[in-house]
């Protein structure tokens, strides 16, 4: 874990998979917190709860900017604190736009027009255009230096499967970063995963690390 996240440098843009409490690479986040790079931009759907996950990065002052869609989960305190004291930049993005901006980056697209947020505060200052009488907002791709994601099973080629709704943002983020690190519950031999069941092809993944109970040790 520690070696895997040592690629993250001060000022990096880091995507972190997960939705609510589901599919979060909690051990990679803990390893990143211990590595303690500064001035990170974090892109994730939520901003962590209590002292867990992304909240621990915000608490330790490692985050300069947070990009997310729903920071106000029950029990989240650190994003609120950092926002109120003005010590971080905060960019709110509708969830589908966040996901599509990430996917676009991974798919080599510079930008796209979405109907989401047209005519709202979140479209202010953005280019808009009508297609067939309907309004759309131009949104740009969202790239990262490093993506931290969580899978269920992975192999040495980086092929990944997921556990139920733990999939969420993980497959798109795997595509959108220069370096993608996946935390998995189980590492299997190359060839053991059913090719029809592989959700993230290994081409998008650089490093697969096995969960090692990093959080159990501190609990």
């Amino acid at each position: 874990m520690a070696e895997a996240v040592s690629v993250v440098k001060d000022g990096d843009v880091v995507m972190i998979g997960g939705f609510g409490s589901s599919g979060i690479p909690l051990e990679l986040i803990e390893a990143l917190r211990r590595h303690a790079p500064k001035d990170l931009t974090i892109i994730s759907n939520n901003a962590g709860v209590a002292e867990e996950g992304i909240a621990s990065l915000l608490r330790d002052g490692l985050v300069r900017k947070m990009v997310c869609s729903f920071p106000r989960s029950k029990g989240s305190v650190w994003l609120q604190k950092r926002y109120k004291e003005g010590s971080i930049d905060f960019e709110l993005v509708p969830q589908g736009t966040l996901g599509e901006r990430i996917r676009a980056a991974g798919a080599g697209l510079a930008a796209f027009y979405t109907p989401t947020a047209y005519g709202t505060l979140l479209a202010e200052g953005k280019e808009t255009r009508e297609f067939n009488g309907k309004g759309y907002v131009l949104e740009t791709a969202l790239h990262a230096d490093v993506a931290l994601i969580r899978g269920e099973k992975g192999d040495a080629w980086g092929n990944l499967t997921y556990n139920t709704a733990g999939r969420n943002f993980n497959p798109s983020m795997a595509m959108a970063a220069k370096t993608t690190i996946a935390e998995v519950k189980q590492i299997v031999e190359v060839g053991d995963l059913d090719p029809e069941a592989v959700v993230t092809p290994g081409i998008f993944v650089d490093t697969v690390v096995l969960q090692e109970g990093l959080l159990d040790a501190i609990a």
Binding site: Q80, P94, T97, P115, T116, L122
Partner: peptide, 16 residues
């Protein structure tokens, strides 16, 4: 706007 706003998927559902 003293609290950070949260939007989630509401805007996407609304248009879609």
């Amino acid at each position: 706007l003293s609290e950070p706003p949260a939007v989630g998927g509401a805007m996407d559902l609304a248009v879609g």
